[in-house]
Nucleic acid binder design. Structure first.
Length: 744
RNA sequence: GGGCGAUUAGCUCAGGUGGCUAGAGCGCGUCAUUGACAUUGACGAGGUCAGAGGUUCGAGUCCUCUAUCGCCCACCA
């Protein structure tokens, strides 16, 4: 009997050491498993690609939960004999990381990014990212993640860069990526475009003004932003609105607050008769909906507000900030006796998630991915999409899930997914920041260098080149913008496997098997992986996706920096051990629901680790030196125990196959504590002390078998303590528990 | 405006295809204790499963409606 077993279990002393043993064994890498003969070379594969955490700081308990879940699945599959690969990685998170570093620099040095210049800023952000990466990787190690570190990937490393440029070029060549002047969400503080998903709406009190453009104008309109009205080109009414029918088609030239404008009265179905006056002042350049109306009616789109949220018109508004301009316009309306009504209303104001600035919709020349454009898919393995068929990116996203090619078992998330797809507009992928993948496009003006063959040019006489490498020849300038961080994230399941090269890994491990992201990023990420994988490989990115919930604090609040309620998983691991943390997060938390983190619960599982430790001590003490080669006929009672155990294994296996880990973990826990410890071991004491040699031997065999099986089925949840106990077993089917065979 | 989820013991939550005499952990009460385990054991109290209707031999579970709380999407000019 090892002395170590005589003391209480100490996770602190054990966990780091065990992790090193695992890493050294090489068994996190499926190739080595095959090489060393623990896995059949022809075995089925099972792949998970880690949702890469942002290198913006520390991991929190949400990550800990996500990784516990995935590690349990991976460990189970590995023990079942599959060729199991879990790929680690991190995400540069372009905008989030840059914003973070810019804020620090502003605070500490009082400088902004333009003071530093592009090169210096990118260097600073990269340094920060490197640092953060180190911390994060250490955290993942401590949680026990059985990831193949030899395949580690970072969204901004060389291989992923190649993947990004290649993906961009292929989509550009297919006409699915285009450059277009369209209305975008402009963040005047961050000086960049942001996506719809990066907007948060805040309810604020505001005023709704009802007015006429001029004395002779026949219709009143309402607005919360009078200053934008100098950009109006039309008034839209509902086609069936009897009040205004007579005016439709008329045009008026007038001067509004010193600005000459021309207003046409048009009929459009998007206007609600019941709202306000039933007439809508159309400002195409500064409102998404108005932009679309302008599309339908072929209207002008004069821009009146610039990137700094200042007015760019002549007269009294010239150069004024929008807020100031608003007051000036209202004063002018009053002066001219054009203001009919002024009422207080609540309004949802769009603000930037990162900077808090009010979003200014502006027309900008940006890069877009067309989600509706038809193209011919050369090669498709996706159910319900045939090779050579006409399809669109949106259709790929919809059909992949609809057909079950991507299995999304949770009905409620399927609904959310489809709803999102149906309302999807073209995806703006360019960002006016510096940290990230620079768009692989170069420009030069045709005037200076004449026309080159085969290179398209736009209407303003500028040649455009898109390619993985910079073009030959002089005078080319690369696009300043970088890509939306989700562009590279969307390639993640295959860029991590070496694409665009046709690597062995890509052929062997893609499509991946399982993905388990938080519901927050279902549209943001899951759908876009399906899009990219579908277009570039004709495959789905993963076979099953299980959406999980958020970990919240004890009172149900989200963890956030501003609330200061964040918990570093390492703190919890220090106190209770990684095994306990994993159980505390997994047990009894139905997948998809939010979790309130309870430290007491975790403490309970630290006790449980010790309980198991003591059970092992008892069994090993009482089975010391027995001959396992001997044939034993079990007593009826022991037969029953074995049967019960087999039933548990079958039950737990079934739960694993259906990703009901929270049930499996709880069942094992309950069985070990309240059956094995409280009943089986208590009752065995009499037999072990008795003179009945046969019954005693049967009991010893049964207890020993019980221990080995329980260690195995608990291992995916509590890998450290089980592996440590395994070390002390005299007879086992494998030196390391992590690659032992899952019991039947 | 549209959608989703939650509502089960004092607290935090499970409850796979309807079979439940409704469970767990923590907390609480009584007792035990040099025993593998003082990180322990035994026993116990505590619930009209949010409410109302319906389907069914049978409903915590399926359907309809209502209430309260939470979240998401859209953005109304």
């Amino acid at each position: 009997m090892d002395d170590k077993l005589l003391k209480p279990y100490d996770p602190k002393e054990t966990e780091k050491r065990i992790y090193e043993v695992w890493e050294k064994s090489g068994f996190f890498n499926p190739d080595i498993c095959v090489e060393k003969g623990v896995t059949d070379p022809k075995a089925e594969t099972f792949t998970i690609v880690l949702p890469p955490p942002n290198v913006t700081g520390l991991l929190h308990l949400g990550h800990a939960y996500e990784y516990s879940l995935q590690d349990a699945v991976i460990r189970y599959q590995r023990m079942c004999g599959k060729r199991t690969l879990w790929i680690p990685g991190t995400d540069s998170a372009a905008i989030a990381t840059q914003a973070r570093v810019e804020k620090n620099i502003q605070k500490e040095e009082g400088k902004n990014r333009h003071n530093l210049g592009r090169q210096e800023l990118v260097r600073r952000v990269s340094d920060f990212a490197k640092n953060s990466e180190k911390t994060i990787l250490n955290q993942i190690h401590r949680m026990g993640g059985s990831l193949d570190w030899s395949r580690y990937a970072y969204t901004l490393d060389e291989k992923r860069n190649l993947a990004v440029s290649t993906a961009f070029k292929r989509m550009y060549d297919e006409g699915l990526i285009y450059r277009g002047n369209r209305i975008v969400n402009w963040d005047p503080k961050g000086q960049t475009t942001i996506s719809d998903d990066e907007i948060v709406y805040e309810e604020r009190d505001t005023k709704l003004y009802t007015f006429k453009y001029s004395k002779e104008f026949p219709i009143m309109v309402s607005t919360t932003r009078p200053e934008t009205k100098v950009g109006d080109v039309a008034v839209a009414v509902h086609p069936n609105d009897e009040r205004y029918k007579a005016y439709v088609g008329r045009e008026y030239n007038l001067t509004f607050c010193d600005v000459p404008i021309r207003i046409k009265i048009i009929a459009d179905h998007s206007v609600e008769k019941e709202f306000g006056t039933g007439a809508l002042g159309v400002t195409p350049a500064h409102s998404q909906i108005d932009w679309e109306i302008a599309d339908r009616h072929d209207l002008q789109r004069p821009q009146v507000i610039n990137e700094y949220a200042k007015m760019i018109v002549e007269g009294r508004l010239s150069g004024k900030k929008t807020l100031e301009a608003c007051e000036i316009v209202v004063d002018w309306l009053k002066e001219q006796d054009l203001l009919e009504k002024e009422e207080s209303i609540k309004q949802n104001v769009p603000t930037s998630e990162r900077t808090g600035a009010i979003i200014e919709p502006l027309p900008k020349l940006q890069w877009w991915i067309s989600v509706n454009k038809k193209f011919t898919i050369q090669h498709s393995e996706i159910t319900s999409i045939k090779s050579g068929e006409q399809t669109s990116l949106k259709e790929i996203m919809r059909k992949s899930v609809e057909s079950g090619a991507v299995n999304m078992p949770q009905e409620r998330f399927r609904k959310i997914y489809f709803h999102w797809i149906d309302n999807l507009r073209d995806w703006c992928v360019s960002r006016q920041i510096w940290f990230g993948h620079r768009i692989p496009v170069w420009y030069r003006s045709t005037g200076a260098h004449g026309k080159s063959d085969g290179i398209p040019s736009d209407s303003r006489g500028i040649e455009i080149f898109c390619g993985v490498e910079a073009p030959e020849g002089a005078g080319w300038k690369q696009e300043e913008d970088v890509l939306d961080t989700w562009f590279s994230s969307a390639l993640w399941t295959f860029s991590t496997l070496g694409w665009p090269k046709k690597t062995n890994d890509l052929v062997t491990f893609h499509p991946t098997s399982f993905m388990s992201p938080a519901y927050e990023i279902l549209p943001l990420w899951v759908s876009r992986m399906i899009l990219m994988s579908g277009f570039h490989l004709g495959q789905v990115p993963f076979r099953t996706v299980m959406i999980h919930g958020l970990v919240r604090d004890k009172t149900g609040r989200k963890f956030s920096k501003s609330l200061g309620n964040g918990i570093n998983p390492l703190e919890i691991i220090e106190k209770y051990g990684a095994d306990a943390l994993r159980m505390g997060l997994l047990v009894g938390t139905a997948i998809g629901n939010d979790i309130k983190f309870d430290e007491d619960k975790t403490k309970g599982y630290k006790h449980f680790a010790n309980k198991l430790w003591n059970i092992a001590r008892f069994i090993l003490e009482n089975t010391d030196g027995i001959d396992y080669a001997q044939l034993v006929s079990p007593t009826q009672k022991d037969e029953e125990i074995t049967k019960q155990l087999e039933a548990l294994v079958a039950d737990v296996t079934n739960d694993f196959e259906n990703y009901r880990l929270y049930l499996a973990a709880e069942k094992i826990y309950h069985y070990i504590w309240h059956e094995v410890a409280d009943k089986i071991i208590e009752e065995s004491k009499l037999i072990l002390d008795s003179k009945n040699a046969e019954a005693k031997l049967s009991c010893q065999y049964t207890l020993y078998n019980l221990l080995t099986v329980l260690l195995k089925i608990l291992h995916p949840f509590m890998p450290f303590v089980t592996e440590e106990i395994w070390k002390f077993l005299p007879k086992k089917d494998s030196d390391l528990l992590m690659v032992s065979k899952w019991p039947k």
